[in-house]
Nucleic acid binder design. Structure first.
Length: 310
DNA sequence: CTACCTCGAGCTCA
DNA sequence: CTCGAGGTAG
């Protein structure tokens, strides 16, 4: 399990003058059980296609194309009978690609398949760096609900016929790639947008406001401040916090002197929590010893309190 | 507060 | 891969 495909190339964001668009057709998504039955590669230099390669592959597995796959691709079992062996095709295919950067949509998937096949049939890894237009799509068109190949083609008005064949897959990937490049105004900014550290912004429970309705001043929640730790059975923390607020209470993310209740959910399965108590739990116990008005209650007691004021 | 870690879900590929 | 939602430490 460790260090799988350790010599695999990197997924890069770049604007190379020379690259090779690739696409493959496989019998399914399982890397171990399924086989590559077609490959294609289109070589580009300074914006022009200068060469191309494609071939079916005979994996030597009888009837490896079922009805579904035939309907999808148009490839038949008979067509594969005359095709060369994986070893022959892959040798020529990798030789054609050379050391160029590889481009494709969700090409990470193709790379993984090719890596495994290369190891298996040629006894060497596939190490080329690659540009995955799926990453570009998600970055440049964040509002699109999906970023599958047909979605991207529709967005750019690219005609997609028989795109489940390797050659047309290359063609479509290239068109998508070109269109994405036109959307990039500032190359450095684009590259940097992939390097940005992820933000850890968390919507705080403090800012929740009551959902409407009249607030019962006699409710045990009224003007009381709650903090949660662990996973709650009743739903997400925010949802539970909302009900507290609706009953006139407050919620925060941190335990302090102003907190009246700490609700203990399930956190045994959190690997981060050592010696059985979360940091919030320990802090609350300390505050209680110091004489603060803070109650540590179980999740179930909390739900009982909720029921009592329905 | 802010910064960083980690687990899991959803996405995408024929 | 990316992100949301949990955690921790300073």
């Amino acid at each position: 399990m460790e260090n799988i495909r350790k010599d695999k190339g990197k997924s890069i964001v770049a604007f190379p003058d020379n690259f090779v668009v690739i696409d493959i057709v496989v019998t399914g998504y399982a890397f171990i059980d399924d086989s590559i039955i077609e490959v294609a590669a289109h070589k580009y230099s300074d914006g022009k296609k200068i060469d191309e390669f494609s071939s079916l592959i005979n994996p030597n597995i009888t009837n490896c194309i079922d009805e579904y796959l035939h309907d999808l691709t148009g490839i038949t079992n008979e067509m594969l009978l005359d095709a060369p062996s994986p070893k022959e095709v892959l040798t020529d295919f990798f030789s054609f690609i050379g050391n160029d950067v590889v481009v494709g949509h969700c090409v990470n998937f193709d790379i993984n398949f090719l890596y495994d096949s290369s190891l298996h049939y040629l006894n060497k890894p596939f190490t080329n760096d690659y540009i995955d237009t799926l990453r570009y799509a998600r970055k440049l068109l964040p509002d699109l609900p999906h970023h599958r190949m047909p979605d991207i083609c529709d967005y750019f008005n690219i005609k997609k016929e028989k795109y489940h064949r390797a050659n047309s897959g290359c063609e479509l990937s290239y068109q998508c790639y070109s269109n994405f490049l036109t959307l990039v105004n500032d190359k450095d900014a684009f590259i940097n947008s992939f390097k940005k550290k992820r933000s850890y912004s968390r919507s705080s429970l403090k800012d929740l406001s009551p959902n409407l309705q009249v607030i019962d001043e006699n409710s045990p929640f009224f003007n009381k401040t709650f903090v949660f730790t662990g996973k709650l059975k009743a739903g997400t923390r925010k949802e539970v916090a909302q009900t507290v607020v609706d009953h006139g209470g407050f919620c925060t993310d941190t335990v302090s002197k102003k907190v009246n209740y700490l609700v203990i959910g399930a956190y045994e399965d959190y690997s981060l929590v050592k010696d059985g108590k979360s940091s919030k739990h320990k802090k609350a116990e300390k505050l209680k010893l110091d004489g603060c008005d803070i109650e540590i209650i179980s999740e179930n007691i909390f739900y009982d309190m909720l029921e009592d004021c329905e």
